[in-house]
Nucleic acid binder design. Structure first.
Lengths: 352, 352
DNA sequence: CTGTTAGCGCATTCAC
DNA sequence: GTGAATGCGCTAACAG
């Protein structure tokens, strides 16, 4: 535990005043080459690291962060992300962060466009956190932020053709492979059920998951194409009819996955149909899915770490502002957890 | 983001000086009843919370923490715990923590006794972190620490008859149930392989895991007692002979678990024997186990979060010292992760 | 360009 | 008992 050197100590080592050291650390004002070299040597030798917290006290700048993510539903995926934001803000409560939330409806591209345009109007904007759903609007937003020199980070998914400062996601291809592992399906009898997305094309995360699953099947000698079915994510009565029809028409189905967080709809339908012989693997640690896991209508949940994504996004930005490091793209791929009925209890509250 | 109130602001609200507020917050010196009430009201209203970091700057006390855990082996369980310690110490590098490491050999009770007696000799000891293996020596140590009024916290396992300030563990009974879930064994053909422990009795964690597994089997209608086999954890040649003999004598065995971190020994032996038809479920994210998972000789690993245990232990103690809250036993039960070959890559480095 | 000074939130020490 | 003064690491504003 070598004690951290202070600016004052660095100044002594380099034979200059603390003010000069500060100027060099933060690249502000002009410093003679001679002193710059002496100070940089001292910083290096001492392994100097800014004390973020005392720095924040003196700095007294308000950091403005805008965040545009899908609206959180109680117990849903995005409310976990928000919990991560909240945890980080609590931990950095000594830093003055202005938090501008601009959520949008993930099923409505207009709502997204409107939220994004509000992002650009935020006064004194320092950074943006984006939970993207729609590709083109996000690309447009990012281009504008690039030209304004405002850093942005992605949570949950990354959008191609953009230049984020950091990205916090899970590997969706691996998610799909894990589905294959957990289903442990035989040659025929596998089905992929998906929600119908209104208008806009399918979410990129689901597409990548499906690729992962298909790759797994190929690697394990299963060549029969999985059966497919779409169901409504909004009209539950309709969904139940669609799902019910599918299982009646395909009585051989024994292994099923839903590649987004709406698996509980299938689980509840299968339960009503009395089909406990179907193994169902679903995604995300949402309240509805947990209930089904508990009841036994879902076999297993594959979970990302939404709270960790949110927490890390803020942590990254705070470090960035105080250490004033330049842009250096950082992608953090978070773990993918497998949750069964048995280990469900120990995941409560701790999904960081 | 309601800005945190400062001591100065609290003082103004209560019509006193900052010094008086400080005296009340830290319960030092005498304060008149009238002012105490006024200040406490103001603290309450403002939701005042000490800024740990600026507090640490002024406080300038060195916190001495002794830690006695089993010696870490590169890539092993306890080296993950140490990584968690290191992460926390880095995060709190602005706080002056004196770190006294007193590791012991987990297979040697004398070494443990000797480490524990050194703990008691540490000058200015403020707190102790204990990774316990042996019951009685730990109870003795804790009794002494109790009488000295020194707080201690447990990581990895808790010892009965002690009064820790906090405990950071996983639920071992759940671990055992998850073994059952993953094995998915049939009526007969299940075996539990265990390492022979020299002298001292079996680790409490394994005992609880076994109970969990047996409960799972009972709940799922499997009544045949699992077969058992012991093998050496130190002499690999001997271990391979013991394991080989067992499988020759019990050719029906198809589902196997090792309830501590030495599963790789069984995996390597089965691989040599060409027995790829045995499903092996093991414990802990160690380098050897990861290799076997990668190779396919282990089906699945059940992992605790050793790094999170270490990190949280220090985090707890630091908060305790700066918020100066009284003893209020806190048990944190960390998640239990299930790792397959597929999701192994995304667990690297991030096991907090 | 560079050193000095003041002030942030906090804990401590010293008059009164 | 209590307020004022000092110092911690840091940043910013000011004076040469």
């Amino acid at each position: 535990m070598a004690k951290q050197a202070s600016i004052k100590e660095i100044a002594q080592m380099a034979g200059v005043s603390p003010g000069t050291v500060d100027r060099i650390i933060h690249n502000r004002g002009k410093v003679s080459e001679k002193r710059r070299i002496a100070v940089e040597k001292a910083l290096e030798e001492a392994g100097y690291k800014t004390n973020i917290h005392t720095s924040a006290v003196s700095y007294r700048k308000t950091i403005t962060i805008a965040v545009s993510c899908p609206m959180a539903i109680e117990g849903g995926y995005w409310s976990s992300v928000e919990k991560g934001f909240q945890d980080a803000l609590d931990e950095f409560s000594d830093i003055d962060i202005r938090w501008v939330a601009l959520p949008y409806d993930q099923f409505d591209v207009d709502s997204c466009n409107s939220a994004y345009s509000k992002v650009l109007e935020v006064e004194n904007l320092d950074a943006v956190i984006i939970g993207a759903t729609f590709e083109e609007p996000t690309q447009e937003l990012c281009t504008k932020l690039d030209s304004m020199g405002i850093p942005y980070v992605f949570v949950d998914s990354s959008i191609k053709g953009t230049a984020p400062w950091a990205v916090f996601v899970s590997d969706q291809h691996i998610c799909g492979q894990v589905v294959g592992r957990l289903l442990d399906a035989e040659e025929s009898g596998l089905a992929i059920l998906a929600t119908r997305r209104r208008g806009s094309k399918r979410a990129t995360n689901s597409i990548e998951r499906e690729r992962g699953l298909l790759d797994f099947l190929k690697d394990h000698g299963i060549t029969t194409e999985p059966k497919r079915c779409q169901f409504s994510s909004t009209d539950i009565t309709l969904a139940e009819r669609e799902i019910g029809d599918f299982f009646r028409e395909n009585p051989e189905i024994r292994w099923v996955t839903v590649l987004n967080s709406r698996g509980y709809i299938v689980a509840d339908t299968l339960k009503k149909l009395g089909r406990s012989d179907v193994r169902l693997v679903c995604f995300d640690f949402t309240a509805d899915n947990r209930r089904c896991l508990e009841e036994g209508s879902i076999y297993s949940l594959i979970c990302q770490r939404p709270a960790a994504q949110g927490y890390n996004a803020i942590h990254y930005l705070v470090e960035h502002f105080f250490y004033k490091v330049g842009r250096k793209e950082k992608t953090t791929t978070l773990p993918i957890d497998v949750v069964f009925k048995e280990n469900l209890p120990c995941y409560r509250e701790s999904n960081r």
